[in-house]
């Protein structure tokens, strides 16, 4: 009989949710987007995504080995980062560039700042921005969906680039944009697939509605106000839903109170529209999230909860 009773502080039971369970849910929520990318861009999409995940996990394991830290790839956070980065790239991205992007995400942005939960910027977003600047050629060449390719035309512009270049008569229909039948990043084109993932994340209580709704809502309202900008087009185009649902809801780099999340979402929407309408880049979702990541500590400070019964 055991005579050494454990005396620990209450509570003595814990919920079943662990970090790995949350990350697994994010991966499940991304499955529709992965499936959509395979349908739209072919089987190669899956290979690119798998390669990116393997890179992210290997970089994390290697970095932790070199730093003599415990290996934590089991928490699946590197899998999420690798998958998200792949979904933010073109299907024909050179694999060495993707491997480099993962190095930036996992080692520079996350590992060097102390690992999971300690990074101030979203690893996948930052890596994407670094890649966009470092490999501006391959990061802005867009392979067309399988069904739109012809014998001699395999690449084309994204809807946002078309608008930027004034090719408005070539724009896809709203339905095609909602389903994802246009050029773009692997995971960003199909709004339908991303919405399914959003509903799943809400149902599993992994994220709250605040940031995505504030983000997309701000983009919609601002584009409705600005003359010459089509609000429906703006929310269906580019990486808005991928960013709003999966990147602007990253725990470590966004505020953890609901009021903070709304401010974060509005800020993202505002910067996105500013860049899209008046900036040099056709798309601004990545930049907006990165900039708001930097503001997060301040937003968190301004939006502390008010304790019930607290007296000043």
């Amino acid at each position: 009989m055991n005579n050494n009773l454990i005396a620990s502080v209450s509570p003595h039971i814990r919920s079943n949710t662990t970090t790995a369970v949350i990350m697994r849910d994010v991966i499940i929520a991304l499955v529709p987007a992965v499936v959509a990318s395979c349908i739209i861009f072919g089987f190669k999409a899956l290979l690119v995504e798998a390669f990116s995940i393997v890179c992210a996990v290997l970089w994390e394991a290697l970095f932790q080995k070199i730093c003599k830290k415990p290996t934590t790839v089991g928490d699946l956070s590197a899998v999420v980062t690798g998958l998200l980065l792949a979904l933010n790239c073109n299907v024909d991205i050179p694999l060495w560039q993707l491997a480099f992007g993962n190095l930036v995400a996992i080692v520079m942005v996350k590992g060097l700042f102390g690992g999971l939960g300690k990074n101030f910027a979203n690893p996948a977003i930052t890596a994407r921005v670094v890649m966009l600047i470092a490999f501006s050629g391959t990061m802005t060449t867009w392979t067309l969906p399988k069904m739109l390719q012809t014998a001699d035309v395999t690449t084309g512009a994204t809807p946002l680039t078309m608008v930027a270049k004034g090719m408005t008569d070539e724009l896809p229909s709203y339905t095609d944009m909602f389903l994802g039948l246009h050029g773009g990043c692997l995971g960003e084109t199909s709004t339908l697939a991303l919405l399914i993932g959003f509903v799943y994340l809400l149902a599993r209580k992994v994220i709250t509605w605040h940031t995505p709704v504030a983000f997309v809502g701000t983009v919609f309202i601002l584009s409705a106000i600005i003359p010459g900008v089509d609000p429906v087009f703006e929310i269906l185009a580019g990486g808005l839903f991928l960013g709003a649902v999966f990147m602007a809801t990253d725990y470590a780099t966004t505020p953890s109170t609901n009021s903070g999340r709304i401010i974060f979402g509005i800020g993202c929407g505002l910067i996105t529209i500013l860049i899209r309408v008046w900036g040099n880049y056709p798309e601004g979702v990545s930049f907006s999230i990165l900039l708001m990541n930097i503001l997060t500590p301040f937003i968190s400070k301004w939006t502390r909860t008010k304790p019930l019964g607290g007296v000043k």
């Binding site: 956070s77 939960g117 953890s256 304790p307």
Partner: peptide, 21 residues
């Protein structure tokens, strides 16, 4: 394991305290 700043503790607190902070 490391805090991932998910905010679940803040949402759970009956008195609206911020355990993560």
């Amino acid at each position: 394991t490391p805090c991932i700043k998910c905010g679940r503790c803040i949402a759970a607190c009956p008195l609206q305290l911020m355990p993560a902070e």
